[in-house]
Design a protein around this nucleic acid. Structure first.
Length: 579
RNA sequence: GCGUCCAUAGCUCAGCCGGAUAGAGCAUCGGCCUUCUAAGCCGAGGGUCGUAGGUUCGAGUCCUACUGGACGUGCCA
């Protein structure tokens, strides 16, 4: 589709240029001004070129210019008409559909992919949990954005490395350890029969309850942290145990939601590296030692205050370790771009980090991107960790699965699938992922569980249902499948509309990659699914007397399926054959 | 105080490089199963695009100010 648009753009542009030449007008800037769009309704054509920008140069009305260009290009016979200041083009639809179906068939699973990022090495860090509590709703948005962007970038040719950093050290980790020592020693997740990350999270909660009563709590945490940093063996042992519990549990959630990483980094391994960078910065004179002994970065250059990079006692702060890890990552796997998927509340942190790296003289500092996303809340209100209103990821998924299963049973669909439980699980994941991806990343959003599970409207389950229906249709098509299609028979307006949407798919993936915004893709898939649903309802596809027509419609349906399935993979939405 | 982001239908959101009459879904009301999956499809009503200026042939989109909200501005992570 894009090729056709480009071809017409070139044609119109050269017509404008030759007209300009005759009148001795400079046409060098025309290319940037000629922007193709779509007419408001397709009876007016398929492509629209507004002529306003050229009125000044030609000293003619846009409508007059449109007329002249139309004539120059062959007028009605060539599919060109004018509508006032617009030059509209009706393209050869059947040729376009034929080419599209051929492309899709040969591309198969690769339909939607492209090569503009080939040769690029992109590292993407996401999820990045703390080992003191289970994942929450915010992580779920982070995870799905991360995995989806990774797949989208990969589809457009990049070599992608998905990484995660496990924040497994620091005061917050000591808090759950301390509570365990004080209140739960001897108990294990197994002995209580609860998920191991939940167990650790419960310890953390207990710490906070205790700390509210006992003012010495904070002090005890600090001394535990110091003991940890000094290599106290008993504390290290406890730390290892509790980290394992936390991480094992978190990994179960990843497996369930289809999230995976190519490499795990651990803060405990990398936080030391940051101190080397601080030293380097001091030697190079880009950081300085404050009179209190702390090491600081002056950010007046970018209009910000100074930032402490190392405490007076030499212990590292949050940013210290990020400084170290990124340098070692680039050494290990030299990247062309590195993306941090982290909530918008940390925008300042990344501004500082990127600036510090620039000051340290790393040329790749300009290749770092922060994919910043907004908060997710439930309809009930804001999540606040202090008030214990944080939405646990596992609980949320469980509840979605339960509701989906009820729905499967209620609607009498249980017999339609091999395993209702498995179907319900896939519906729940689709509901969650699609809902989270549908909104532009940077916006705060409200996750409405009930709405996400709806089978009507812009939801994951709706998309799955449409896909299941096309799958069933194709499965039942019998020998029609063997008849060669004749795309010229696809003359209906809705068939053209569907073809257009399918044709846009690769461009949507490309745009999503460029903007790191899977919502572009999610919304595009919905539009396609909706158009197809309408068509499916409106016209018999395989149950048509004309078998060649049936075969042609079937070919279109297959193209829809290919597009939706490929899109599902990019959005990490499970495919269900029948439901 | 300062900084960043957000503001579009009752609610949740789209709206591409500034282009023709601002679109979906939910909710509400009404219609459609003897024909490929009705977990569906169709129709109706619903808008001062936060406010006021500006740039432009043309602004929901760009600029400025203001209002409201979120987040940040820690030697927390």
């Amino acid at each position: 589709m894009k090729e056709i648009t480009e071809r017409w753009r070139t044609r119109v542009l050269s017509a404008l240029a030759s007209m300009a030449e005759q009148e001795c007008i400079d046409s060098t800037k025309f290319a940037a001004l000629l922007t193709p769009g779509s007419p408001p309704n397709s009876s007016m054509g398929d492509l629209a070129f507004p002529m306003f920008p050229f009125a000044g140069s030609f000293k003619k009305s846009p409508a007059q210019i449109a007329e002249q260009i139309a004539e120059h290009l062959g007028g009605n016979a060539a599919g060109i008409q004018t509508a006032g200041p617009y030059l509209n083009v009706t393209i050869d639809r059947s040729a376009a559909i034929a080419a599209l179906l051929k492309n899709i068939t040969s591309a198969g699973d690769n339909w939607g992919s492209g090569s503009e990022l080939s040769g690029k090495r992109i590292m993407i860090e996401f999820s990045s949990p703390n080992t003191n509590k289970p994942l929450h709703l915010g992580h779920l948005r982070n995870d799905i954005l991360g995995i989806s962007c990774a797949r989208i970038l990969e589809a457009r040719g990049a070599q992608v490395r998905k990484v995660i950093i496990i924040n497994n050290r620091g005061v917050h980790i000591c808090k759950s350890m301390l509570a365990y020592q004080k209140f739960s020693s001897g108990e294990t997740p197994e002995s209580l029969g609860i998920k191991s990350d939940r167990f650790v999270g419960d310890c953390y909660v207990r710490y906070n309850q205790w700390a509210a009563q006992d003012s010495s709590a904070e002090q005890q945490v600090q001394s535990m942290l110091l003991a940890w940093e000094n290599g106290d063996t008993e504390i290290k042992k406890l730390w290892e145990l509790m980290n394992k519990w936390a991480l094992d549990g978190i990994k179960i959630t990843y497996r369930r939601t289809g999230i995976s990483f190519d490499h795990y980094y651990f803060e405990s391994d990398t936080y030391i590296l940051g101190k080397e960078q601080i030293q380097k910065g001091l030697e190079d004179g880009v950081f300085y030692r404050h009179e209190d002994g702390s090491v600081r970065l002056d950010m007046a250059e970018i209009g910000l205050e100074t930032k402490v990079l190392l405490r007076p006692n030499g212990t590292s702060v949050y940013i210290t370790q990020d400084l170290g890890t990124i340098v070692s990552r680039h050494e290990e796997w030299p990247f062309d771009q590195h993306i941090y998927v982290v909530g918008s509340e940390q925008e300042y942190h990344f501004i500082v980090l990127f600036f510090a790296l620039r000051k340290l003289g790393y040329p790749w500092a300009s290749q770092l991107r922060h994919l910043s996303y907004g908060m997710v809340n439930l309809p009930e209100g804001k999540m606040k960790s202090r008030e214990g209103t944080v939405v646990d990821a596992d609980n949320l998924i469980d509840s979605l699965v339960e509701q989906a299963l009820n729905e499967v049973k209620e609607k009498g669909r249980a017999s339609d699938s091999a395993s209702p439980e498995e179907t319900a699980e896939k519906i729940a994941i689709a509901a969650l992922h699609y809902y989270l991806l549908q909104v532009s990343p940077k916006k705060d959003m409200i996750f409405n569980p009930r709405e996400s599970l709806s089978f009507t409207g812009s939801t994951g389950p709706y998309l799955q249902y449409v896909v299941a229906r096309v799958t069933g249709l194709i499965a039942k098509s019998g020998d029609i499948d063997k008849i060669p299609p004749s795309p010229r028979l696809l003359t209906r307006e809705d068939e053209w509309q569907i073809a257009r949407r399918i044709g846009e798919f690769p461009e949507l993936v490309a745009r999503a990659a460029e903007k790191l915004d899977p919502s572009i893709l999610a919304n595009g898939l919905y539009e396609l699914a909706k158009d197809f649903s309408h068509y499916y309802h409106e016209v018999p596809i395989v149950k048509t007397d004309d078998r060649i027509l049936a075969a042609s419609r079937l070919a279109l349906a297959k193209a829809v399926l290919t597009t939706l399935k490929n899109g599902f993979l990019l959005l990490n939405i499970p495919y269900i054959e029948s439901m």
